[in-house]
């Protein structure tokens, strides 16, 4: 065999290996999603959403407090975290671009995205739970909002960076204030991108467990009072998986299924928003059926 064919063979072999690794990655995805579908679907029932949990050991019941609590905590965290994050992101992109100090802060914010989320729970516990004396739903929302802040700030910054400089300059040339440029030009141009960042941020915190373990804790009774401990799907799953009862495990599977589907749908929605041409074929079909132009 000539040296050339050997080199080619070796190259093809290595590329085959890289193909195998991709297959390995996808294999786990299918396995995890597959078992979620099979087990989650099997134990899914409408009662899961509207029934309260039964006393431990007694079959049946549902996870109503967890569903309600999860929605409350996540929405509250979003309401708090999104404005903070967008404001920080705007500053990094529009005011701090030429300041070394703020560019360093931006990098630190980027690092904060990856810090262990359980520590945020511990920090919030020290400030908001121990002084009050008991776990409360509000502290859980604060912990999640703090986790969300850097995610939103960084994506906002990235999206604003994509807005062409000329757009801003044209507005400045007309005598606009900086906040007018931001509000009417930059934000309008980056609207979809920022939306995407917000959705990704929500998807990120919706699946968080660790920061809620010692802040909002858990509750077997439905509550809307943010001063009380509040159940969430993830913490309930944590307790149910560790618990001894078989029906707890089944309910944990069903909850896992619903949570994963919600998070994945959010991620896909974000991706579609960002690459709207993915939907182009669909629009084309709709147009050809309705016979309308544009869209």
């Amino acid at each position: 065999m000539s040296r050339k064919t050997l080199r080619k063979l070796f190259s093809n072999f290595m590329l085959f290996v890289s193909f195998l690794t991709a297959a390995y990655g996808i294999f786990w995805l299918f396995w995890i999603l597959g078992s979620l579908f099979i087990n989650g679907f099997k134990y899914l029932s409408p009662g899961l959403v509207y029934l309260d949990p039964t006393p431990p050991g007694e079959e049946g019941g549902g996870l109503r407090p967890a569903f309600v609590g999860h929605l409350i905590i996540t929405s509250l965290a979003t309401i708090m975290g999104v404005p903070m994050g967008i404001m920080a992101g705007i500053y990094f992109a529009e005011y701090g671009r030429n300041s070394k100090f703020f560019m360093t802060l931006r990098q630190i914010t980027d690092i904060m995205v990856s810090t262990p989320s359980i520590l945020m729970g511990a920090v919030v516990y020290a400030v908001m739970v121990r002084p009050v004396g008991h776990f409360n739903g509000f502290s859980g929302a604060v912990a999640l909002a703090i986790l969300m802040l850097p995610v939103i700030a960084i994506t906002t910054d990235e999206m604003l960076k994509l807005v062409p400089k000329e757009l801003r300059e044209a507005a400045y040339a007309l005598g606009a204030y900086k906040w007018q440029v931001i509000k009417d030009v930059v934000m309008r141009a980056a609207k979809v991108g920022i939306m995407t960042g917000v959705i990704l941020g929500v998807a990120r915190i919706a699946g968080e467990t660790a920061p809620l373990l010692f802040t909002s804790f858990n509750n077997n009774v439905l509550t809307f009072d943010l001063r009380d401990p509040m159940a969430s799907l993830t913490v309930t799953m944590f307790n149910y998986v560790m618990g001894p009862y078989h029906y707890w495990h089944q309910q944990a599977w069903a909850a896992a299924f619903i949570l994963t589907m919600a998070v994945l749908l959010l991620s896909i929605l974000a991706k579609v928003l960002l690459h709207r041409n993915l939907l182009e074929p669909l629009f084309y079909i709709v147009r050809s059926i309705t016979g309308k132009k544009g869209g």
Binding site: N39, G207, E208, M237, A256
Partner: peptide
């Protein structure tokens, strides 16, 4: 397709990995 699959794998909440690892 591969990129999306990898991104979806990244989006799955970590407790799901734990639950799946524990039960399956």
């Amino acid at each position: 397709i591969v990129s999306t699959a990898v991104e979806l794998l990244a989006a799955i909440p970590s407790i799901i990995y734990g639950l799946w690892g524990f039960f399956i």
